[in-house]
Amino acid sequence: MTSIRGHRIVALEMARKLLLKAAAPPAWNLNAEQFQITLERSAVHRFGAASAPDATADAKAASAYFESLRLADLALACACSAGNSAAWDHFVAQYRPELYRAARAIAGESSARELADSLYAELFGLREKEGRRKSLFDYFHGRSKLGTWLRAILAQRHVDDFRRARKTDSLDDADDGEQSNEPAAANTAPDPEREKYLVIMQAALTAVLAALAPGDRLRLAYYYVEELTLAQIGKLLGEHEATVSRKLERTRREVRQQVEAALLEEKKLSEAQMRLCFEYAREQWPFDLTLGLEAGQARSVSTRD
């Protein structure tokens, strides 16, 4: 690769300087030209080929971006991709334990080995494309730590495999078995209004959730759906654990208040009917109102008690 748009995104001098900063061991035989190509690929991935900062026209922006990269990890990925055995040995020694550990945490003990080994093969570059060995390292752009990127690859593969195996749209259906342990008292004394109340309830909640700020919705999803701990949510969102807890509580309180307001004011339910909505929602678990929502069956209940 000589250029992206007919001119260099990364000057060779800058690539040499960044390579020096990466402190790649001489045994990796990594030269500035190779690193220049890797850096340019990273810049194009970040900014797109059309808007990547020009080495001459926008040197400051380009420099700021490249300085923010994990250069040591990027150099290791570059050397491994080039097939340097010393770099590969270093990678195996450095990341093999972490890779297997992450695989065990993600896929469990039984599938961990298979998951990690398949990744090893792709990292090493067993596949060839147009006569050239294609390594998965080419997709590492240095914007994160190499270990984090490996975990992301593992997680993506595991989730994809899981979805394929389940042949379902949503991984979250796995929770159904657990959730079905909730009492289903509704079946014993069916209320003709039950389904209608549930549809109304679900519609109100969906509207309230759609109006939430993305951060609040994401926090709720991490907590209720992914069942992360407060500390894990805080790590993902860059918040203190106590802040996560406080914001979750506030959001949940607001959601409940807004759902109640929607039921009382918009749907014109009485207090008793609203309580029934909550009761049915709690008892009939799980209930699938998706079809009801899609059919637009959310209709208001007319009169108050």
């Binding site: 749209d169 949503s170 979250d172 929770d175 959730q179 909730e182 309830m201 679900q202 909640l205 969906t206 959730l209 919705r217 709720l220 999803a221 209720y224 759906v225 949940r252 959601v255 409940r256 759902v259 109640e260 309580r275 909550f278 009761e279 929602a281 709690r282 678990w285 799980p286 209930f287 998706t290």
Partner: peptide
Amino acid sequence: SPDKAIDGLLRRTLARTAP
């Protein structure tokens, strides 16, 4: 009960987001 109902509803509704 309303809190529990809200928790369950939140869990279910948020999980329904399509990929």
